[in-house]
Amino acid sequence: MSDSYKIVAKITKKQIADNLLKNTRIDGRGLLDYREITTEIGLLEKASGSALVSIGKTKVLAGVKVEMGEPYPDKPDAGVLTVNVELTPLASPSFEPGPPSEDAIELARVVDRGIRESKAVDLNKLCIVPGKKVFVVFVDLNVLNHSGNLFDTSALASILALMNAKTREYTVSKGGQLKYKKSTTHLPIQNFPVEVTVAKIGEKMVVDVSLEEEAVIDAQLTIAVGKDNEICAIQKSLIGTFSQDEVHQALQIATDKAKEIREKVLRGVEGWLEGKE
């Protein structure tokens, strides 16, 4: 990511650019092709929900924990959602331990925005006692291998882990005391946002940039698209610029790709969700 200063061999940059002119990429993909996406869901027992998503060699593990907490004063009857990202040194030689970097914060906030604004989790259903007790949903992302396109991978891991997450059912006594039942229930999920990052290299638009490509891209737009093709969040990053036409172009690419990814991923997952009902 942009925090670590990248010096790329001119020859690599040229190679990437030359390939793009021929509408191919150094790893042989087309401009709008993703690397292979694989998902593994519910792989951890102690987490309320978990998902491991790989896009190519990039790997992100998302864990969800649901705990009791207090609501925000301005939203007394809504549950709380927080997204946190750890760019651990396991994932890349340029990541260092310590407090989250600017990049980690941006990544977490962009993922958060996609989930929050698409209303993927119906937070109103997570209120226990208005103004006092609500469920707090923590989504913690652990980047395990950074090989480009952390935004899309992290967003996908988050929503899948949320879909996987279960909470204990409960009853509330008159005094506001909570009594858990043995049965569990899924979180109230009502949307499936997919984030697609469209990068601009020279005049060309590409998706799912690899690590080598990430070092030479001029600018990128991360667009979160909901299940009805609505746009829920956008973030432009890196120091290049987009023209208005390019934004429209990126929007079209993101909408198409989001749909494609959602269908592909849910095909594998849907049955699983129903089975757990």
Partner: peptide
Amino acid sequence: RTGGISLLQMDGILSQTEFKEALE
């Protein structure tokens, strides 16, 4: 002068046409 967009963010829900209108 160049029309280059150097900041673009969005949060909330907009349809494709609404977004284009808002950007304009």
